[in-house]
Design a protein around this nucleic acid. Sequence first.
DNA 1: TTCCCAATCAAACGATTGATTGAGAATTGG
DNA 2: CCAATTCTCAATCAATCGTTTGATTGGGAA
Lengths: 210, 210
Amino acid sequence: MHQDQPCPFPGKRESGDERRLAIAAAARAIIFEVGLEGLRTRDIAARVGINIATLHYHVPTKEALVALVADSLRQEFKAQAQRNTRAGRSPLEQLRLEFVDFHESVHDTPELIVVLSALIEKGRRDPAIGAIMTPLYDYWRLQFVDIFRRGVSDGTFRPDLDPHAAALITTGALSDYSRQWTSFRASYEQLTAELERAFIANPSLSKDPS
Amino acid sequence: MHQDQPCPFPGKRESGDERRLAIAAAARAIIFEVGLEGLRTRDIAARVGINIATLHYHVPTKEALVALVADSLRQEFKAQAQRNTRAGRSPLEQLRLEFVDFHESVHDTPELIVVLSALIEKGRRDPAIGAIMTPLYDYWRLQFVDIFRRGVSDGTFRPDLDPHAAALITTGALSDYSRQWTSFRASYEQLTAELERAFIANPSLSKDPS
DNA sequence: TTCCCAATCAAACGATTGATTGAGAATTGG
DNA sequence: CCAATTCTCAATCAATCGTTTGATTGGGAA
C-alpha cells in the first residue's frame, strides 16, 4: 500500500519512505561530522526531529541504520551513473567527464566521499556493509577500466597500459585527494592533468601500430 | 591474587614505557579488527593483561590513548625512514625501494595502513590527532616528491611530470590498494609496474644523454 | 459510527561506557 | 632494613548507549 500523494500538511506525519530518507541524510551528515565512532541514534533522531522510539520504528537497529546509509550511497551513485550518458564520446572525453563529475560531487556534497570511505572501511569487517560497498566501489573503478581499455584500443592511451592497474591508480588518487584536499598544495587540475599525462599515448610516437 | 596469567614472567613488572608500548600495540590491533568505533578501553586492558585502572594510570584518558597510537605510528614511520638510507641510489631505484618497503609493511603489519587511514580520517576533525597524522602523511608523500623531482632532473621521468601531483597519485594508489587489496584483481606488481610506466620518460625520446 | 493501523512519543530498561577510588603489592634509593 | 615511589587491582561511579514498553494520535476502511 503505497501512495504517491505527498502529505498536504507538512509537519504532520510523513510516510515511511520519506522518513527513512531523512534519517539516512541525517546519519550521513553526522558521520561526516564526527565519524562512525560518534554516530548516536539519539543524535540522528534529534536532527530529523523525531523521537528516538520513532527512529527505531522506521529502522529497527543501528546496524540496519548503517546499512540504510550504505544503500542510500548506492542509490545516489546509481542515479548519478544513469544521469549522464557517455555514449558516442571519446575515451579521453569520458575520462575528463569523470574527473569533472567527481570534482562536482566533492564540491556539492563533500560528505559523500568521506562517508563512502568510512563505510568501505567498515565493509572490510562487516559483511552486510561490504556486500553493498564493495560492488559500489568496484563499479566506479570498472568505469575507468572500460575507459582505459577502449582508450588503449583506439590509441588514445599508451599501448602498454594496464587498464585495471590504471583504474586502480585513478580511483585511489581521486579518493585520496578528496579525503584530505585541505593539506594538498597541488590543485585538482594539477592532479587530473598529471593523470592524463600518465596514461596518454606519447604523441611523438607513431599512432598507427601496423 | 594475580589475575588470569597475563605476563610470561610472573612477578615481574614492566616499566612504564614498555606498558605504554604494549598498550599502543593492543589498541592498534583492536582498531584494525573493529575500527575506531569499536575501540574500548576495557578490551585494550584485557589484551595487554592489565586492569582497567592500570590502563588509566599509564594513559589518563581515551583521547590520550588515541594520541598515543598516533604517536606510535609516527615513531614507527620515523624509524623506518631512518633504517634504510637511499643515498647514492638512482631515482628509479629509490622509487622501487619505496614500493618494496611499502609492500613489506603491508605484508608484515597489515594493520599499519588501516590504522593509519583511520587516524588520518580522525585527524580531519580532531586537531590533536591531525597535528600528528597530517605531517606524517605529508612526510611520506614528500619522499616521493623528492624522488620524482630528481628523477625529472636526470631524465629518468617525464620532463613534464609534476612531482607533487605524481607523488599524490602514488601515495593515493598505494594506500588505496592496501586498504582493500582483497577485492582487487590486479596484483601489487601490476600496480607498481603501471606506476613506473606512468611516470618514466619514454626511452625512445632520450633527449639529454650527456 | 466503529474499527484498524501506521506513525509517534514519553518514559524507562538493561547493559556498557570511560573514569575514579582507596588499599595494597612491588620496586627503588638510602 | 626502611621509607618513598611506582605500579596494580577489586570495586564502584555517573553517564550514556541502543533498545523496548505502553500508550496516543489521526486518517482511512468497514
